[in-house]
Simulated scan of single mutants.
Amino acid sequence: MLAQIVLFDGFDPLDVVAPFEVLAAGSDALGGTLDVKLVSAEGSRTVVSGTRGLTLEASASLDPSSSGIIVVPGASGPINADPEEVDTIPVLLARVGETPLPALITQALANPEITVATVCGGSLALAMAGVLEGRNAVTHFQGMDVLDATGVNAIDARVVDDGNLVTAAGVTSGLDLGLYLLERQFGPRIALSVEQLFQYERRGVVWRNTGAEPLAV
Score class of each variant (00 low, 15 high):
Leu56Val: 05
Ala103Met: 12
Gly50Met: 02
Glu84Arg: 11
Leu34Phe: 07
Pro78Ala: 03
Pro83Thr: 14
Gly74Gln: 07
Pro78Ser: 04
Leu62Cys: 10
Pro73Met: 04
Gly97Asp: 00
Val39Ser: 02
Ser66Trp: 02
Arg52Phe: 09
Glu57Thr: 10
Val91Arg: 13
Val86Ala: 10
Pro90Ile: 05
Leu56Asp: 07
Ile79Met: 15
Asp35Ile: 08
Gly68Glu: 03
Lys37Met: 04
Arg95Lys: 15
Leu92Phe: 01
Thr46Leu: 14
Arg45Gly: 10
Gly74Thr: 12
Ala58Tyr: 00
Asp35Trp: 07
Asn80Ala: 11
Glu57Gln: 13
Ile69Gln: 08
Thr99Trp: 03
Asp82His: 01
Ser40Trp: 11
Gly74Ile: 04
Pro73Val: 11
Leu92Ser: 12
Leu54Thr: 12
Val72Leu: 05
Pro102Lys: 01
Gly31Trp: 11
Val86Cys: 00
Val86Ser: 03
Ser61Glu: 14
Val72Ala: 04
Ile89Thr: 02
Gly43Met: 02
Val96Lys: 03
Ile70His: 10
Pro64Glu: 06
Glu42Thr: 14
Ile89Lys: 03
Ile89Gly: 06
Arg52Asn: 14
Ser67Ala: 14
Val48Trp: 03
Glu85Gln: 15
Asn80Phe: 11
Arg95Gly: 00
Gly97Ser: 04
Glu42Asn: 04
Val91Leu: 15
Val72Met: 05
Pro78Gly: 06
Thr51Tyr: 12
Ile79Leu: 15
Thr88Asp: 07
Glu85Gly: 06
Glu85Ala: 15
Val36Asp: 10
Ala41Ser: 15
Asp82Glu: 08
Leu101Ser: 03
Asp35Leu: 10
Arg45Met: 15
Ala94Asp: 14
Thr33Gly: 11
Gly97Leu: 01
Gly97Glu: 09
Gly97Phe: 11
Gly68Tyr: 06
Val96Tyr: 01
Leu38Trp: 05
Ser61Pro: 03
Ser49Pro: 11
Leu54Gly: 04
Ser61Gly: 14
Gly77Ser: 03
Thr33His: 06
Ala75Thr: 01
Pro100Met: 07
Ser40Ala: 13
Ala81Thr: 08
Ser67Ile: 02
Leu62Asp: 02
Val36Trp: 08
Ile105Ser: 07
Ile70Ser: 08
Asn80Gly: 03
Ala103Glu: 14
Leu34Ala: 08
Thr99Phe: 04
Leu54Pro: 01
Gly97Pro: 00
Ala60Val: 05
Ala103Asp: 15
Gly43Gln: 09
Lys37His: 09
Glu98Thr: 11
Glu84Asp: 14
Ala81Val: 04
Gly74Arg: 04
Leu104Pro: 06
Leu38Gln: 01
Gly53Ser: 08
Glu57Trp: 10
